[in-house]
Structures are given as structure tokens and as C-alpha cells.
């Protein structure tokens, strides 16, 4: 469609040519877009937890409390990133696949994958393609558990963007999948996880 390409570029140039002057790009400070904190926090981890919970997410900082929650929810079979399998191995009554089997997509009740970062100002989990072991494993199961190393929590959205690198697919997830399409009533769990969990650990 090179002809449409040429037509569009020449139409743009023709449209802009008569402008007597052009708007300069404004300078702005990184601090301008940072959200005012909702309280005093002694660590980024504490602020992240507070924001995640206010975005209807769940926060855990120990494997034991997380697995206790999974059992309580009856979520005992899921998908787990092979590199994180040691976290769940040997936990009574919890079983998992380390290879995502599309035929079992509706059987996986939880998916546990690694997140590349957390954002404290918004309670956001950052998923990078190069770090996520299987896109569907982080998306299809009802419960998604993102494992974050405590030192990977950054203060702001701007900082998280600075860390993008050349990864072709990065996802900010802030709370569970939701809709208010039907009469404005909030329903969680539309296509993605109905429950979004962050498991923040000092060592993985």
C-alpha cells in the first residue's frame, strides 16, 4: 500500500505547511505525574500493599499464608512457572502443571508466574514477556499470583516505564479484571483473573 503511505504523508505535509508557527514540546517534571501518597509508609513494599488492596487486589509476603488462602478458596490445581515450582513443591493438597496445557485451560484455578516489578504509587504488577513463563498462565486462571522480588518494587509509573528495555510486551495489571458494562454494576473477573494476588518475597 505504498501509494496510501505516500498519500497520507503528503496530505500531512500539505496540512501543516501553512501553519505560521508550530507548538513546542513542553518541558515537564517527573514529579508532576506522581500520585500524592494516601498516607505515610515506611517502605515501598508497604505502600505497594496498601495501593494493591485499594485496587481490590490481594497482598501476601509469605508462601505459607498464600497457600493457606488457596486451600481456603478450594483452588488446589493450577499452572506454575517451572522456575518458581520450588515455592509450591511439597505443599499438601496443592498440585500444578509447569507446562501450560491449553486443553486444561478451564481446569487451572490458579496461575503463578513471575512479575518483573511492582509499582508502589498505584499497586500495579508489571509483567514482562521475557519474565512471564506463559502468557495464558498469567491470564486464564481465576486466581493469578504474581511473584515479585521486594527489591523490584519501584516508586512510580515513570520509573517502571524507564525499565521497559526492549521487551515487546509489557503489561501493567492493577487489580483484577473488571467491567461495569451491565447497568454500571462492578463485576470482577471478566476475561482475565477475578482475583489478582501479589506475593512479595525478599528472596525467590
Amino acid at each position: 500500500m505504498s501509494s496510501d503511505r505516500d498519500k497520507i504523508y503528503s496530505a500531512i505535509r500539505a496540512a501543516l505547511a501553512p501553519l505560521p508557527e508550530r507548538t513546542e514540546k513542553p518541558e515537564w517534571d517527573d514529579a508532576m505525574i506522581v500520585c500524592k501518597p494516601s498516607g505515610k509508609f515506611d517502605s515501598l513494599k508497604a505502600q505497594f500493599a496498601d495501593k494493591l488492596i485499594s485496587a481490590s487486589g490481594r497482598f501476601y509476603d509469605s508462601v505459607d499464608t498464600l497457600t493457606a488462602y488457596l486451600k481456603e478458596e478450594g483452588s488446589t490445581f493450577g499452572y506454575c512457572d517451572p522456575a518458581l515450582a520450588h515455592l509450591l513443591e511439597g505443599v499438601e493438597s496443592i498440585t500444578f502443571d509447569t507446562e501450560f496445557d491449553e486443553a486444561r485451560i478451564n481446569d487451572y484455578t490458579f496461575g503463578l508466574t513471575k512479575a518483573s516489578a511492582g509499582i508502589a504509587e498505584s499497586g500495579t504488577i508489571v509483567l514482562k514477556d521475557s519474565v512471564t513463563s506463559a502468557r495464558l498462565g498469567a491470564l486464564a486462571p481465576w486466581i493469578h499470583i504474581a511473584v515479585i522480588e521486594e527489591t523490584d518494587i519501584v516508586a512510580s509509573i515513570g520509573e517502571a516505564i524507564q525499565g521497559f528495555g526492549d521487551d515487546p510486551s509489557i503489561i501493567f495489571a492493577t487489580g483484577p479484571s473488571k467491567t461495569a458494562d451491565v447497568e454500571g454494576i462492578l463485576i470482577e473477573g471478566v476475561h482475565g483473573p477475578g482475583i489478582q494476588v501479589a506475593l512479595v518475597l525478599s528472596h525467590i
Partner: peptide, 24 residues
């Protein structure tokens, strides 16, 4: 749009999936 600090999912896509990624 909706009064959310951030929309639930903000995706940044710049190309096809990475080689190691099974999906996408």
C-alpha cells in the same frame, strides 16, 4: 474516563512475542 487511578490493564506492545514465550 472512569475515575480509576490506572485502568486495570495497560499493555505496551512493540512487536511479536519473544522467542522463549510459548504464547502470543
Amino acid at each position: 474516563g472512569t475515575g480509576q487511578q490506572l485502568t486495570v490493564y495497560n499493555q505496551f506492545i512493540s512487536g511479536p512475542k519473544t522467542a522463549s514465550q510459548p504464547h502470543g
